[in-house]
Amino acid sequence: MAIPINSNYNIEEICSTFGIEREDFLRLISGKQEEPSNLKTIIEVIDEFMGTVKKSNKSATTISYYASFLSQFKSFLNEVDPSIDLLGLTEVLFNEFILEKCISRDGGSLSRGSINTYQSIIRELLFFSLIMKYINIDLRPRFEKLTTDILPRYIPDDVASNIIIKSHHTSRPHLNNTIIIFLLGTGCRLSEVTKLRINQFDVLNNLIFIKKSKGYKDRYIPMYPEVKNIVLSYLQRTGIKEWNRNNEKSLFTKGFGEDRPPLSNKYIQRTVKSILKEIQMDQRFSVHSFRHTFAVNCLKIGMRIDILAQVMGHKSIETTRVYTKLLPHDLKNDVMEKFPFPFEKLMQKLIPNGGATNGETN
């Protein structure tokens, strides 16, 4: 028998007290949530948020601090993917920004206190977005106060091998498999991969030339045999029968032959996220995790940290030193005993069947 409920609550009074719309309150008590129709990019909201900060009663020094941090964050987002929306503002993305872009005044990594201050600004940004109804859920719990240092997340060998295997079963198996192996074997940033030209993949000298982008220097990355063979196989399948140092067409593309429009950052992000989601690792890793993985693997095989800093394109060697914290002392000793250990042996371990793939031509 149903029990009758007599409610004395005045819905209008509750809505007035808490400053919410009647429809929003009814959705809340019914457990229903409506997707925001005006979901904005992080960059768009940063600009709006700074407008309110400048009009607030914060001190001039504080406003300047906010502006400096958010300007750096915007620059990072423009390089990674300017179209990332508010729901894409995750702990992983924030940590990548901290590890890649932020250094202290003495050239070292940021203190835990500075990172927590940055996180408090991000929480304010998310609260502003909630008030403005750009999001309908409170994302601030994603950015809790740090109690330990931020360390880069690198992909273990067994997970990396699984990712490579899964790439064979995507809609464009050869293209996606080649990209995954290229990311693992070069440590390139996402924007560097999509901008890469055929003539920068120098098969004669076994070097990959990375042209400077905003804030970075030109650099060369060693071309390991497994990466070289798989990329050359991909080029042949996409209509490039021989490498030519004068060919300035895009290295990676959905096109064929000389019709080679560059891939978008979003394409690679979606492809990687889809694979990671399939193996239930999408909340732990991202495209940038492949870069961290390359760095850790280079340390495992005994690469000198100053050389690794140059290969990675780090402005400060202190940024590179962060990776050494991921290696336990016994592993460090083991690394040095085996030095020099060919990187290609590690790649052979990761790539099943030499990276051979079946399926579409691109």
Rank of each mutant, 00 (worst) to 15 (best):
A2H: 13
I3F: 10
N6Y: 13
I11A: 05
T17L: 12
E23K: 12
F25H: 02
R27Y: 11
L28E: 14
L28W: 13
S30A: 06
I42E: 07
D47R: 12
M50P: 07
G51I: 07
V53N: 08
V53T: 08
K54D: 14
K54E: 15
K55G: 13
I63A: 00
L70I: 06
L70N: 06
S71P: 08
N78C: 02
L86G: 09
N95I: 03
F97Q: 06
D106G: 03
N116C: 05
Q119A: 09
E124H: 08
E124W: 01
L125R: 10
L126V: 00
L126Q: 08
K133T: 11
Y134N: 02
I135L: 00
P141V: 08
R153A: 07
H169E: 12
H169M: 09
H169G: 00
N176T: 14
N176Y: 11
N177E: 13
I179H: 07
I180Y: 01
I181L: 02
F182K: 06
V193Y: 01
R197T: 14
F201T: 05
V203S: 09
L204Y: 11
L204F: 04
N205G: 04
N229I: 10
I230G: 01
L232P: 06
S233K: 15
Q236F: 03
T238W: 10
I240E: 12
W243P: 07
N244Q: 13
E248C: 03
K249Y: 07
K249N: 15
F252H: 07
K254F: 07
G255A: 03
F256G: 00
R260T: 08
L263F: 02
I268F: 02
V287M: 04
F294L: 01
R304G: 04
D306W: 01
V311F: 01
G313Y: 03
S316P: 08
I317V: 13
E318P: 01
E318R: 11
Y323V: 06
H329T: 13
K332Y: 07
K338C: 05
F339K: 15
P342M: 06
E344R: 15
E344Y: 06
L350E: 14
I351L: 03
G354T: 05
